[in-house]
Design a protein around this nucleic acid. Structure first.
Lengths: 239, 239
DNA sequence: CGCCATTTTGAAGGTTTTCAATGTCAGTGG
DNA sequence: CCACTGACATTGAAAACCTTCAAAATGGCG
């Protein structure tokens, strides 16, 4: 039910383009100040710069799969990522959407990923071998503290999300979803209104625990209620 | 919607009975091996023993309120606790039920509690002033590591829970709920079948995002389907 | 322009909620 | 001892909301 089946990896797997090392330099990273790397001192950044790998992913390209052994952690440098789990019956539940600066891949003590991750649109993702990152973390209370803080923020966000999914009607879930995107965009220096939706309707449905039809109808009704104004299919004002 | 109103504290607030210090000693604590304290060395336990306070709570007695300034962290020594949030419209969403050994009160960088906590039945709860606990934590990588691990476990549990709430029908949510209780009981050395339900039907409803009527009907159907066998109202076999 | 994927809309059906009533049980007092 | 009470739980019927299945509309791209 909640457990997960072995996954069929799609054809896009391992087709990411490795970025030229000069362009990938941490000093040029626009996501640095929202990233864990932003909490590192110069020596640590230099070290990260040496062992990290940066790749370009295209829309729907997988980053890792649930069930695969954990070999790397990842940081979103640009673009968006969805974290999801496939259920036994084939349905998908999306745990969250990541933005530049978000870190992924860590877990309690599992040696396999519990969720899958794939790019939404073009995305640049840095990866860190666990041994090298753990080494860095072990010797840096600052990094550990930042990880702990991000964990708490994630727990708090998930608590809000569980209320949204558990207690709100479709229209209200959508409205909260748009507000969350707006807040996230503000946090990373993007305009918070209007907002763009990097994901498609099916992804929104799988995230809010609705069907694509209910999402579509909800958006139509929010438009009619003047709560939002669609600029195009993936861009909207929040009133 | 997801934000929280100021709460009316009920009459039971501040009526907990402080436990005689001899009985409360950490060396006599049956929850120690499931607690953070179980990861501490002798010196640290001695220190905790000196600054902790242990109180007895009765059913429905509040431990802390959402919106109150964070002054302490807490550890469940015996009994059960519910962590919940009150919504603007008065509805309650229960984030989780705690068992002996569970730690609560930490947050990302908030100075107020985001959730409320209250005892379910009789419970013994230890409290630690944040300054003293933070001091201990700061100087102990072992404690920090344990906190980080517990955080990850919490995130992973919440991910499962969001799938349960978002994707399963009432009967299946209930079944997963019973299995989770069973697993939790096993973890702390209680018989995992039959299980007892410390919380009432309304709490189950507020936890699983259902109504009390749907919970009641679901249990009746699970009985008819021979999935469970009720021993009494709050005790059941899982088949 | 035409194709295909995505999105929207429609109508019927299913699950849960709501509102209302009944049932159960432990505690209390006559 | 038994009726009464109040809290909690169960059951019933109608209504609300969402899903399902089906079809039409939209939009990007060769």
């Amino acid at each position: 039910m909640v457990a997960c089946p072995p996954m069929k990896k799609n054809d896009l797997y391992n087709q990411q383009v490795e970025k030229h090392s000069q362009l990938a330099k941490c000093s040029l990273c626009s996501a640095k100040r929202f990233s864990i790397c932003g909490k590192m001192d110069e020596t640590q950044v230099k070290k990260v710069d040496s062992f990290k790998r940066t790749k370009n992913y295209k829309d729907k390209q997988p980053i890792f799969f649930q069930g695969d052994p954990v070999k790397s952690y990842f940081n979103v440098r640009s673009g968006n990522v969805k974290i999801y789990r496939l259920l036994d019956d084939g349905r998908m539940h999306i745990m969250g959407f990541l933005y530049p600066g978000d870190f992924m891949g860590l877990s309690s003590d599992q040696d396999t990923y519990l969720n899958s991750a794939e790019a939404i649109g073009n995305a640049e993702i840095c990866s860190f071998a666990i041994s090298e990152f753990d080494e860095l973390n072990k010797n840096s209370p600052e990094i550990t503290k930042e990880l702990l803080k991000r964990n708490f923020q994630e727990i708090e966000f998930m608590q809000k999300q569980s209320i949204i999914i558990g207690k709100l009607h479709a229209k209200d879930r959508l409205m909260e979803f748009f507000k969350n995107i707006s807040a996230q965009r503000k946090k990373i220096g993007l305009p918070d209104n209007p907002i763009s939706l990097p994901m498609n309707r099916q992804d929104i449905a799988d995230y809010l625990a609705l069907t694509i039809e209910t999402v579509s109808r909800g958006i139509t009704e929010l438009k009619n209620d003047q709560k939002i104004k669609m600029i195009d299919k993936n861009k909207l004002y929040i009133n």
